[in-house]
Nucleic acid binder design. Structure first.
Length: 221
DNA sequence: GATTGATCATTT
DNA sequence: AAATGATCAATC
């Protein structure tokens, strides 16, 4: 797939995909369809990246850097309600003194997101799930304020060496949870007394209530 | 190990 | 039923 040259071109391409099942799209692209996602958790996201011409692979950048757009697929039920939280980015755990919201990975990734809802419960085979209407989103002032509050609160705890006390319950719209291959994956962080410790890598995730509201806001317009 | 893509599976 | 904590694959 070639890369879309503009945001309208990207939106148009995404709109053409709405209504297709994932197996239809996969067949067009010559991609095999897994029987379930247990061992292919990123399959849906990678399929849509391919279909829309996103930069492939594991680059630490937006999916469409020249357009300033991040692509995210989000599983939703029949009523358009998100079935999962949405991963945003890995949380920095060291050298975070002076890091400001304005310069954070979270803000930068979420500044402009092309959301592709994918309709289908967990029990529905991946190939039978249906691509929904895309939505290009930029946080409202209120949404950004909520994100900022949670981010600042969580980052303060990390900087204070209290990462081991942070649970997914912190934050109204943004939460910090493990983001790792397994429970043996460790990375460096700061302990309660300022000493280096090894801990599970963490990531920022958007809670489903937040993504549900943002989807609703747009589909009501 | 860290980054990309996320969902699974158990607990609440 | 929903949310939290744990995990899977590919790539560099």
């Amino acid at each position: 797939m070639s890369r879309p040259a503009s945001i309208p071109a990207l939106q148009h391409r995404a709109e053409q995909l709405a209504g297709l099942s994932l197996s239809e799209l996969a067949h067009q692209l010559g991609i095999p369809v897994p029987p379930h996602l247990r061992r292919d958790k990123g399959w849906v996201g990678q399929l849509l990246e391919l279909a829309l011409g996103a930069s492939a692979g594991s680059k630490p950048e937006q999916d469409f850097p020249e357009l300033g757009v991040e692509l995210k697929t989000i599983p939703v039920d029949g009523r358009g309600k998100p079935l999962e939280t949405t991963f945003v980015s890995v949380a920095p755990l060291t050298d975070i003194g002076g890091l400001r919201w304005e310069d954070s990975n979270v803000r930068n990734k979420l500044s402009r997101v092309l959301w592709i809802p994918v309709l289908g419960e967990r029990s529905l085979a991946p190939g039978d799930r249906i691509i929904g209407q895309p939505l290009l989103w930029t946080p409202s002032a209120q949404e950004e304020q909520l994100l900022r509050q949670d981010w600042e609160e969580i980052m303060e705890l990390i900087s204070l060496g209290q990462i081991q006390d942070i649970t997914a319950r912190h934050g109204q719209v943004l939460q910090l949870r493990p983001k790792a291959a397994n429970n043996r994956a460790l990375t460096e962080a700061v302990g309660r007394h300022g000493q280096p410790i090894m801990t599970l890598p963490r990531g920022f995730y958007l809670k489903t209530g937040f993504t549900a509201a943002l989807l609703t806001r747009h589909f009501m317009l």
